[in-house]
């Protein structure tokens, strides 16, 4: 019963949060000078003043702020995220077109970074002064410090230009003819470099955190007790210590759900990956309010879902969480 109440409370707060995200962002975007008519004029190489006024009338931008906000919120409550001024199509369709590419990129990068990061973090925690530990620390710091677009360009120069193993841009080669597996491998080839670039940030986070928590856990009393009991070291580390050390890593991974949009923007732009990140970037540049708000709505939704999933995962690995209800 406590669980049901807990979920219901969370859902209530989630809806309030989503509405607040929309109202706040709608207001913030409207406070900025200029509007989408200017960016449409930019895309056209300039426009007559009459055309600019017409664009503003067409999209209701000539209406008072409160009328525009009311009209937008009314549509959202009817599950309509509006119509993109710039792309001239429904925002929901626009987002749904881009979501699969971003999910593929971000989840592959996350999973890869999580598996390798945690594994290397644990190994280096066991021998904090070993060569591997220094090696992991170096790569983690490098991944964290290097701007991701720079890493992306370096990867392109190395693996697309010098040794031409991977394609440069996009998600697929549209000139390719073949069956499912031909296209599947084509997408995998296109995915490799963007995933490496994006996972370099996540890898840094996970390996550093898991190394630190694992070192702390390995120094705790119960681990010493387990060792004293004569349990094999592998069992102590991977069966007992790792489970406890994972909690902060899972929490961090949950927080990274917001990276579905934010983390992927630069990587998607460098690799022309047709995802939500590039759409967000282009919509902000274009001041395409309905699209920006739609993406923020989706992003907020991902964070909320991510937090819920994190809770479930923590319950699975940590009995104390289950005991709390």
């Amino acid at each position: 019963m406590d669980l049901v109440r807990s979920v219901a409370t969370r859902l209530f707060y989630a809806i309030i949060l989503l509405l607040a995200v929309l109202v706040l962002n709608f207001s913030l975007i409207h406070m900025a000078p200029g509007d989408v008519a200017d960016t449409i004029a930019q895309s056209m190489g300039g426009a007559d003043a009459e055309i600019l006024d017409q664009i503003r009338v067409d999209y209701g931008l000539d209406q008072p702020f409160i009328v525009q906000l009311g009209s937008y919120m009314g549509r959202v409550l009817r599950f309509d995220l509006g119509y993109s001024y710039f792309y001239q199509m429904p925002v929901t369709d626009l987002i749904l077109q881009r979501v699969p590419a971003t999910l593929l990129l971000v989840f592959t990068a996350q999973i890869l970074a999580l598996l390798i990061g945690v594994m290397l973090g644990v190994i280096s925690a066991r021998k904090p002064n070993g060569i591997l530990s220094h090696f992991v620390t170096f790569f983690a710091l490098f991944g964290y410090a290097a701007p991701v677009f720079w890493t992306g360009i370096l990867l392109l120069i190395g693996f697309s230009l010098k040794i031409q193993w991977f394609p440069v841009a996009g998600m697929r080669d549209v000139t390719l003819i073949g069956g499912f597996w031909v296209h599947f491998w084509d997408v995998v080839r296109h995915l490799v470099l963007p995933v490496i670039a994006l996972s370099s940030i996540f890898f840094a986070l996970y390996s550093r955190l898991s190394r630190a928590t694992m070192m702390e856990t390995l120094g705790s009393d119960y681990v010493r007790t387990a060792k004293a009991k004569g349990l094999p070291i592998r069992s102590v580390v991977y069966k007992h210590a790792l489970k406890n050390a994972l909690s902060p890593v899972i929490t961090l991974a949950g927080l990274q759900f917001s990276a579905v949009v934010s983390g992927a923007v630069l990587v998607e732009t460098v690799f022309a990956w047709p995802g939500l990140g590039t759409l967000a970037f282009q919509s902000i540049i274009a001041r395409d309010t309905p699209t920006i708000l739609g993406i923020l709505f989706f992003s907020a939704l991902m964070v909320i879902v991510g937090n819920l999933l994190t809770d479930f995962a923590l319950r699975a690995v940590d009995p104390r969480m289950r005991a709390r209800g």
Partner: peptide
């Protein structure tokens, strides 16, 4: 093909994409 980054376009041209 829509490729916003000029460096990526140049590399794609050089590797024949």
């Amino acid at each position: 093909r829509i490729i916003p980054d000029s460096s990526a376009r140049a590399i794609a041209l050089q590797n024949g994409e």
